[in-house]
Design a protein around this nucleic acid. Structure first.
Length: 586
RNA sequence: GCGCCCGUAGCUCAGUCGGAUAGAGCAUCAGAUUCCUAAUCUGGGGGCCACAGGUUCGAAUCCUGUCGGGCGCACCA
């Protein structure tokens, strides 16, 4: 698989290479020692634009190795940089920064590059085609998706897209927890609805079963499929059948809900199938062979009062303390069934077979189990080389609000806000973008009243509006006979160049966001780019000569429309990563 | 009691591998619309980056401790 914009072709990477070449030359001359470590050298835009287009800290980082002071070393670097015709200015600043200004032509060429690559602009080969498994959502198949699942779903999906864009192969995976006690509860709840569908009066749903109405059609479906065969049968006769049927129905609901958010997984892995295939047994055997599982007795929980029925039991324990966990963890229960962790351990083993790196997106309420699963993955490489890279991303709770008032949700009464209701009320794009305008590990508020306001307070409209304005202008240009054209882009001036510089950051942002595994950076970047565009647009309010379409000047109009089209392209590409539609009209 | 996450402007939040004078929106004050979409823009005021130490040329960022908020803490999922 080849990628259209290899790293070396992006503007920033090209200039980083120029700096690197200068350092190599200084090594040849003996100014720098031959084995100089450059790992801390950065070449990036300074925060303050008045310092220039790019800055490097090379002199400060390398001064010690060169046995000189930063400013002196900077002088030698600057001397060589100035020889490059595309670097119009290179000067020493502050403690030894080197600030560079690039020739306009370099930026204009990047603008043409955007057009050349189109929807591939910003793609990177950073990932080198390596496979990353992103497991996200993985909600229990016991009912429709509710709000609590939403953030993790969006964060995981956007991260998956981001990694694809950055040159990884991505497996989007959903782990179906269809083997635990709660799917038995689901099966019993479905059986009750089945009897109801066959005409029985069931009254109130008993405590401990799922009361939600969403099981009514499941009962009807089962009545149609199975007749009254299991109406009076013993539980162990019907339980496995009802469990499987109900889970399948629930997964149908969940997939429909996810589709409302534009989320589609590549792979649904069943815990029950995993167990049926004997994977946990295989894992246990392997771990015992490496002395990572032993039979032992857990201590009573400290600090808080132990449960009344606490008693010491001997269980097979995984040595997670060896990998930094606080205590060893049981992989089997006293009834001989696998614990959730025991199965999950085998599941991660299975995922690791087909991927070069693993990422799990979990809700923050599972924070307590991160250490043990990290320990499990670390244990997989016991005795054989480097461990598989593994990240667990914790997504914090969302506090739902309406006009400043917290919304209370109660699972018991079945009174929770579903994902479908949420998407229906505010729309897919608002849900997705809003969830991505905070870093996932920080708690956030989601106010139903605020997020639908069509204002600058609401970033999704702000960014989409910029894209819509661009297309409005392109339409108007077309109507008046002006087409975007790369031919005369040298007519673009200082204000346009500022906009181009902002757009040219996109490939950098993609790589930075992908290596940090933080899709939200793309959202913030797009917000800034949209802001720069809106600011430029408004210049035309005061001065008609600064509009995109200047009726008397076809060459200039063509160049500016070309600029507009490329800004739109970058917004489109960024929104595509986030899974948000780039509307052309609002 | 222990573990994990968070603490940045009145509010909601960014802040790149440690980099230069810490940013944006909202709110507030003052302005811009015979105009390609004002769902926009320009400017002002607003900060002990929770607190105290440490690391170094340099700390909101890394380390230690304290305080505050959230989540979790035997075989549940």
């Amino acid at each position: 698989m080849s990628y259209s914009t290899p790293e070396s072709r992006t503007l920033h990477a090209a200039f980083a290479e120029k700096v690197d070449a200068v350092l190599s030359a200084l090594e040849m001359e003996g100014t720098l020692p031959a084995d100089t470590s450059r790992s801390n050298v950065t070449v990036e835009p300074p925060r303050d634009a008045s310092h220039g287009d790019l800055a490097t800290n090379a002199a400060m980082v390398l001064a010690k190795q060169a046995k000189t002071n930063p400013r002196e070393l900077a002088g030698k670097i600057v001397e060589k940089l100035q020889a490059d015709p595309e670097i119009t200015e290179a000067e020493i600043a502050g403690p030894g920064f080197i600030n560079m200004r690039l020739a306009d032509g370099a930026w204009l060429r990047e603008l043409a590059t955007i057009a050349e690559f189109g929807e591939d602009y910003g793609k990177s080969n950073m990932g080198g085609g390596s496979t990353v498994n992103v497991e996200y959502v993985s909600a229990n198949p016991t009912g429709p998706m509710h709000m609590g699942h939403c953030r993790g779903a969006v964060v995981g999906d956007a991260l998956a897209s981001l990694l694809e864009f950055a040159g990884h192969k991505v497996i989007r995976e959903y782990y179906v927890n269809d083997a635990g006690g709660q799917v038995d509860v689901l099966a019993r709840s479905a059986h009750l609805r089945y009897r109801e569908a066959l005409g029985e009066t069931i009254g109130d749903i008993p405590e401990g079963l799922y009361p939600g109405d969403y099981l009514v059609p499941v009962g009807q479906y089962l009545a149609n499929e199975l007749g009254d065969k299991y109406q009076a049968a013993a539980e162990d006769e019907w339980l496995p059948i009802f469990r499987a049927e109900a889970v399948e129905q629930m997964m149908g609901l969940i997939k429909d809900d996810l589709a409302l958010l534009g989320i589609h997984h590549d792979l649904f892995s069943s815990e029950a199938a995993l167990q049926a295939a004997g994977k946990p047994e295989a894992a246990e055997e392997w771990l015992r062979k490496h002395d990572l599982v032993y039979d032992g007795v857990l201590e009573a929980p400290k600090g808080k009062a132990p449960p009344e029925d606490w008693e010491p039991v001997e269980l097979p324990l995984f040595r997670s303390t060896k990998f930094g966990d606080d205590q060893d963890r049981p992989i089997k229960k006293s009834d001989g069934k696998w614990t959730y962790f025991g199965a999950d351990l085998a599941y991660h083993m299975q995922k690791a077979e087909d991927a070069d790196a693993l990422i799990d997106i979990w809700g923050a309420d599972h924070a307590g189990t991160v250490k043990r699963i990290k320990a499990a993955v670390a244990a997989l490489s016991e005795g054989e080389g480097t461990p598989i890279p593994f990240d667990v991303k914790l997504v914090q709770m969302v506090q739902l609000m309406r006009a400043g008032e917290p919304l209370k949700m109660s699972k018991r009464s079945g009174n929770f806000i579903t994902l479908a209701e949420m998407v229906d009320e505010v729309g897919k794009d608002v849900v997705r973008f809003t969830m991505l305008t905070r870093k996932p590990e920080a708690q956030m508020e989601f106010d139903f009243a605020k997020v639908v306001e069509a204002s600058k307070d609401n970033p999704v409209f702000y960014v989409q509006y910029a894209h819509a304005r661009i297309h409005s202008t392109l339409r108007k240009g077309a109507a008046e006979g002006f087409a975007p054209s790369v031919k005369n882009i040298e007519l673009l001036g200082a204000e346009e160049l500022e906009l181009i510089k902002q757009a040219a950051q996109f490939p950098r942002m993609v790589e930075a966001a992908a290596s940090a595994r933080e899709a939200h950076r793309i959202a913030f970047y797009l917000y800034d780019l949209a802001g720069a565009f809106h600011a430029y647009w408004n210049l035309g309010n005061d001065n008609p000569q600064k509009r995109f379409i200047v009726a008397q000047d076809a060459d200039l109009s063509g160049a500016r429309l070309f600029l507009a089209a490329q800004i739109g392209q970058v917004i489109l590409n960024g929104l595509a990563i986030l899974g948000v539609e780039a509307v052309e009209e609002m």
